[in-house]
């Protein structure tokens, strides 16, 4: 009874019209402080990646709903694509497959020969990486960053750091992995760099994304031997991108007399906007911890080739396991 009276009194003291809780300003200050804290935690410490993953997983049904209309239109287009066009495409593809088979025959012999020669020279034998086929489900939602989202995730054994290529060349690298999807950062993103080699003269360098759909190769002297039209391929030094994949074509070289470095601009060859399919290449297995032990067992001293330690790591396990790996790598194809 007393309680009831008390409540009534309180209600009288603060009529509902004026009840607004803490002032808007103090709320704003509180939430700003909270967001700044979260930003700092997210940027500097990696505590929140789990939260993000859980949220994205919970959001998956919603995403499926959001993606549904575009998928339906795509399916509808496929359904109504003309019989003739399909036949033509089939014919063209068969022809292409035939040509590639012929090429592949030569490639196999050359590769066998190469392996043989390398074994004789006590050199390293490159391991053929495995790859998973994925499809771009949409472009990244943040127009600031250059990303695409692929319909393969940790459920398909995708790991952050994997290289991603399409039929023309390198697309980028997996940066975030969610259960059903993963985020691929394009090589044009400012955050990404890629070790490259000029195909013509084997000159090694590192290319950095510039943001506006171009790559920049800084820190090369003005008299460097690079021409417009030169093809940049991956050098394989990082152990992430397999060597020899096309990256970009040099489109512009500026020599500023005031600067000791040339400004070299190149455009990526991968067609992210035109293709849907892409390959996610497995990370080299050498990053697992068992490598040194295995190496010791074989009694093989660390390779003495000219390349950086990362590549050495990638390749050391070769000898004994080569055949096994080869068999494994070839099996799914």
């Amino acid at each position: 009874m007393l309680k009831g009276v008390h409540q009534k009194l309180e209600a009288q003291q603060t009529p509902a019209f004026f009840v607004r809780g803490p002032s808007v300003f103090s709320r704003m200050v509180f939430f700003c402080a909270l967001s700044v804290t979260i930003m700092a935690v997210d940027a500097r410490l990696n505590y929140l990646s789990q939260v993000r993953q859980a949220f994205i997983a919970a959001l998956h049904p919603l995403e499926v709903v959001a993606n549904a209309p575009s998928e339906w239109t795509r399916d509808l287009q496929k359904y109504f694509s003309a019989h003739n066009a399909l036949l033509q495409e089939n014919y063209a593809l068969k022809e292409q497959a035939f040509e590639q088979k012929v090429l592949l025959q030569r490639f196999n012999t050359i590769e066998a020969e190469n392996t043989h020669l390398r074994t004789m020279l006590n050199g390293n034998i490159p391991i053929q990486p495995k790859a998973i086929l994925g499809e771009i489900s949409h472009m990244g939602r943040d127009p600031f960053t250059h990303t695409v989202v692929v319909n393969r995730g940790s459920n398909h054994n995708i790991k952050a750091g994997q290289a991603v290529v399409d039929s023309k060349g390198v697309i980028g690298q997996v940066t975030r992995v969610y259960p059903f999807t993963s985020e691929v950062t394009l090589i044009t993103d400012k955050e990404l760099s890629i070790p490259i080699q000029i195909e013509r003269n084997q000159l090694r360098a590192i290319a950095f994304g510039e943001g506006n759909n171009t790559l920049d190769i800084p820190y090369l002297p003005t008299n460097v031997d690079i021409k417009v039209g030169d093809k940049l391929v991956t050098s394989g030094m990082d152990g992430v991108y397999p060597a020899g994949l096309t990256v970009a074509i040099v489109t512009k070289i500026q020599q500023n007399p005031e600067s000791p470095f040339a400004k070299i601009v190149s455009t990526p060859v991968a067609e992210v906007n035109n293709h849907l399919q892409l390959l996610l290449i497995d990370l080299p297995e050498a990053q697992e911890s068992k490598v040194p032990a295995l190496d010791a067992a074989v009694g093989n001293p660390a390779p003495t080739e000219q390349n950086a330690t990362t590549q050495a790591k990638t390749i050391t396990k070769s000898k004994q396991k080569t055949l096994k790996n080869r068999a494994k790598a070839n099996a799914p194809h």
Binding site: C32, L34, S35, R52, R141
Partner: peptide
């Protein structure tokens, strides 16, 4: 709806777009 609701909505946007957590919230 108050500042808190807006903050929460911003956080959802951050999570959904994959940008730095707390940017949109702020």
């Amino acid at each position: 709806c108050n500042v808190g609701t807006a903050w929460f909505a911003g956080l959802l946007v951050d999570l959904a777009t994959g940008s730095l957590l707390g940017q949109h919230a702020l």
